[in-house]
Amino acid sequence: MSDLMKTLAMSASGMKAQASRLRHVSENIANTDTPGFRRKTSTFEETIEAGQRTGLVRSGPVKLDRAELEQIYDPGHPMANEAGYYDGSNVDLVVEIADAREAQRSYEANLKMFDQVRQMSSALLDLLRR
Rank of each mutant, 00 (worst) to 15 (best):
T41Y: 03
A80T: 01
L64N: 15
F44P: 00
G55M: 04
Y107A: 11
V94T: 11
T43N: 13
D99K: 03
A50V: 07
D33N: 15
Y107C: 05
F37A: 01
H77L: 10
D65W: 04
P61N: 11
L93I: 13
P75S: 10
E108N: 13
A100M: 13
N90R: 02
N31V: 09
P35S: 01
V95T: 15
D33H: 06
K40Y: 05
D65A: 10
P75E: 15
D33V: 06
P78Y: 11
V91Y: 04
N90T: 00
E46Y: 03
R53V: 11
D99N: 10
I29L: 13
E68L: 01
S106I: 05
A103L: 11
T32R: 10
D33G: 01
F44D: 04
D99R: 01
G88V: 01
T32M: 14
Q71H: 09
A98G: 09
A83Q: 07
Y86E: 02
R39P: 01
M79E: 12
A109H: 03
Q71A: 09
I48K: 05
E45V: 11
V62E: 15
D74R: 02
R38N: 10
D65Q: 07
L56K: 07
Y85D: 10
R66Q: 13
I97P: 00
A67N: 15
G55W: 05
